[in-house]
């Protein structure tokens, strides 16, 4: 099939109720689609092409902000929406970033409410709590959302979470699930995976925070759990055991470059300005302080427990290096 969007978007009114996955062409979207498509009818929305897409997955190459997306909801019975179309790339233009996330989420939720969707799953992040020396070792879902105190670029991720939260109050008839996952590692291109894929890993001297990572497949598991009828609410999603950063680096078999604390900030800021690094300076706090979550609620209510141990997760991450 070509990647071109057909003029009329799915007219089969009597078709099976579908699961709509926004941002399906991202790494997690693809994994989720491949997990679901044998048992569910999956419709993808993403402005990016979906390479090697299984044939039974419908894909619509539309920017999520465009009104045309609503056509998909009009013409297909949709039972669930998994909203993964959330951009986090601090290099991107702030305006683009913001409208994509806020407008995209607002629209998606709007369509879900208007077209009788029963379930909405939004992938948020545990990073919205923000790393801090004052954090409890394990933050619960009620912990204050302080992630933007040093890092204003993640403000729209917080807003996405809040949008989904207020949506869940406004629409009690829809089961809204918000998943706040810890650092996802694997083929995904995010700060944590990119950082741990470096050949020699920079660290901040004198700090060795406890870190939680989660295998990308486990995140897919969590989303599948969230799709089960009857489940709703905010859940922290954590992976295997919480471990010091130094142990993770040692297990990966890598060397570190320790930077003295005040110098580390200025070096990274300088490199950032001259586009020598993709590591945003405020994320240095993640190399100093912990931002770990208590996933008791997910284990109890969502019945989610990670399948991959830390060693397997790290081996998987290593296998994604070129």
């Amino acid at each position: 099939m070509q990647e071109k969007t057909p003029k009329v978007i799915g007219v089969k009114k009597k078709a099976r109720a579908a699961v709509v996955v926004t941002g399906i062409s991202g790494r997690l979207g693809k994994l989720l689609a491949k997990r679901l498509h044998r048992t569910e009818r999956v419709i993808g929305i993403d402005r990016r092409p979906f390479e090697d897409r299984p044939r039974d997955i419908e894909h619509h190459r539309i920017d999520i902000r465009r009104k045309r997306c609503e056509e998909i909801f009009r013409h297909n019975p949709v039972k669930a929406v998994v909203h993964l179309n959330i951009l986090h790339d601090p290099r991107k233009d702030a305006h683009e970033h913001h409208t994509f996330n806020i407008l995209g989420t607002t629209r998606t939720l709007e369509y879900a409410a208007r077209h009788g969707v029963k379930k909405v799953v939004v992938l948020s992040s545990a990073n919205i709590y923000g790393p801090s020396p004052e954090n409890s070792a394990f933050l619960t879902e009620d912990a204050p959302i302080l992630g933007s105190q040093h890092f204003s670029e993640i403000r729209d991720l917080i807003e996405v979470d809040m949008l989904a939260n207020s949506f869940s109050w406004k629409h009690p008839e829809i089961e809204t699930v918000i998943l706040r996952t810890v650092h996802i590692v694997g083929h995904v291109r995010n700060a944590a995976s990119n950082y741990l894929r470096l050949r020699r890993i920079p660290v901040v001297f004198g700090f060795d925070p406890m870190v939680q990572l989660i295998h990308e497949e486990d995140v897919v598991d969590a989303m599948v759990c969230a799709l089960r009828p009857g489940v709703r609410g905010v859940f922290n999603i954590a992976g295997p055991e919480t471990t010091p950063l130094s142990v993770i680096i040692r297990t990966l078999g890598k060397e570190t470059i320790p930077f003295p604390p005040p110098l580390a900030d200025s070096i990274v800021r300088f490199m950032w300005r001259w586009k020598l690094t993709s590591f945003p300076p405020p994320e240095l706090h993640h190399l100093r302080f912990s931002c770990n979550v208590d996933d008791a609620r997910a284990r109890e209510v969502l019945k989610f427990a990670p399948r991959y141990g830390l060693k397997e997760t790290l081996e998987h991450l290593r296998s994604t290096e070129k």
Partner: peptide, 26 residues
């Protein structure tokens, strides 16, 4: 005292010998 965990070496050392940030949850 939470202050200690913001300090290089001190915070890391405290946590390795079993001391914790003073929060009710901990």
């Amino acid at each position: 005292e939470r202050w200690a965990f913001g300090m290089p070496l001190i915070g890391e050392f405290f946590s390795r010998v079993g001391q914790i940030v003073g929060t009710p949850e901990n």
